[in-house]
Simulated scan of single mutants.
Amino acid sequence: MTDTSNRSVERGFAIVDELAANGPGRVSELAERLEMPVSTVHDYLQALVSTGYVTVEGKEYRTTARFLEVGHRHCHRLEIYQAVRDQLETVAEETGEHVTLLIEENDQAVILAVEEGPDAINLFAYPGARIPIHATAPGKAMLAHMDDERVDELLEEELVEITSRTVTDPDVLSEQLEEIRERGYAVDEGERIAGMVCVAAPVLDKDDRIRGAICVCGPQSRLDESRREEIADVVQRAANVTQVNLDYV
C-alpha cells in the first residue's frame, strides 16, 4: 500500500474516531476539530455514508450501528468468547458485582463482554472499550503470563498514570507480575478507577497461552481483604471452566 493510500485510510478512521468520541457534527465543525480542509472531510464523509458506516441527518453526520454489527461478529468468532458461555453471568450472580471478560489486543486490554450483578456499580464499561494493560487487574493478569520478551517490550513504553495509584515503575510492575504468577490472580486497588477494587484471573489454554482474563470490580468499602479472597476463588473457578471449554470450541 502506498503512502497516499495509508494517509487516506488514516484520515478516514480519524473522522470515524472523532464522531465516535465526540458525537455528531457538521462538516465544518469536524474539519475544525480535525484540522483538515472542509473539502477533504466532506469527501471522506460521503464515502463513509455510501458504505453505511456514517449517516447524515440534516447537516449533521454521525456513526451508525453498522459498527455494532462488525463488533458482534468479531466477538462471536473468538474462541474465548464462545468458551466463556454463561460463566460471566454465574460470577455476577455469585459476587453481586461488575464482571468483565477482557483480551489483549494491540498492547491494550479490551473488554469483550460485561455482566452486572445485583449490587454492581455502573462503571460505564462496554464491549470494545480499551484500557491501558498495565493499569488494571485483568491487564496485569494477562501480562503475567505473556512471554518475557513481549512484557519487556511493553514495559519499555511509557506507563501512563491514570490515578495516583497507577503503577508506572517498570521494576515495581515486574515484581507484581511475579507475585500474580505465584498467586494465580491479580488485584488493582484504585489503579484505574479511584475507590474501586478489581480482582482478575487469567484464562489460559491447554498450551498455557494466555487467552484473556475474567475480572470482578466493586467499591473498596465492600471488597476488603477477606472479600477479595472469596472473589479470587470465584474468578479462578470461572477461568478454569473457560479453559476447559476452550478445548471443545
Rank of each mutant, 00 (worst) to 15 (best):
T2D: 04
D3Q: 05
T4I: 14
V9C: 07
E10Q: 12
A14L: 11
E18N: 00
L19W: 02
A20L: 12
N22Q: 04
N22L: 07
G23P: 06
G25P: 01
V27K: 10
E32I: 01
R33I: 05
L34G: 08
E35R: 11
M36T: 08
M36K: 06
P37H: 11
P37W: 03
T40H: 08
T40M: 14
L45E: 09
Q46Y: 14
Q46A: 08
V49R: 11
V49L: 11
G52P: 11
G52Y: 13
Y53F: 14
K59I: 13
K59G: 12
E60Y: 10
E60W: 04
T63I: 01
T64Q: 02
A65W: 06
E69G: 10
V70H: 03
V70G: 05
V70A: 12
H72T: 07
R77F: 03
R77A: 09
L78Q: 08
E79Q: 08
I80P: 10
R85S: 06
Q87S: 04
L88W: 00
E89Q: 02
E93W: 10
E94G: 01
G96K: 04
G96L: 08
E97D: 07
H98D: 07
L102A: 04
E104L: 02
E105F: 06
E105V: 01
N106T: 15
A109C: 02
A109S: 11
V110P: 00
V110A: 03
E116G: 00
D119H: 10
D119R: 09
A120I: 00
I121S: 03
A125K: 00
R130K: 09
I131F: 04
P132C: 10
I133W: 10
I133T: 13
H134V: 03
H134M: 05
A135S: 14
A137E: 00
A137W: 01
P138H: 09
G139H: 09
G139F: 12
A144S: 15
H145F: 15
D148G: 15
E149L: 15
D152I: 05
D152W: 01
L154R: 13
L154E: 12
E157M: 12
E157Q: 15
E158T: 14
E161H: 09
I162S: 10
I162V: 14
T163W: 08
T163G: 13
S164M: 06
R165Y: 11
T168N: 02
P170M: 14
D171N: 15
V172S: 14
V172L: 13
V172H: 10
L173T: 10
S174K: 12
S174P: 03
E175L: 14
E178W: 02
I180S: 09
R181N: 09
E182L: 15
R183P: 11
G184E: 05
G184F: 05
G184T: 03
E189F: 04
E191F: 08
M196R: 07
A200F: 07
A200L: 11
A201S: 09
D207P: 02
D208L: 12
G212R: 04
I214T: 02
S221N: 03
S221T: 14
R222M: 06
E225S: 09
S226L: 14
R228M: 11
R228E: 13
E230G: 02
E230P: 06
I231N: 04
D233Y: 10
V234P: 11
V235N: 04
V235Q: 01
Q236Y: 03
R237I: 06
A238H: 08
A239Q: 05
V241H: 01
Q243M: 14
Q243T: 15
V244W: 01
V244A: 13
D247Q: 13
Y248S: 15
V249N: 05
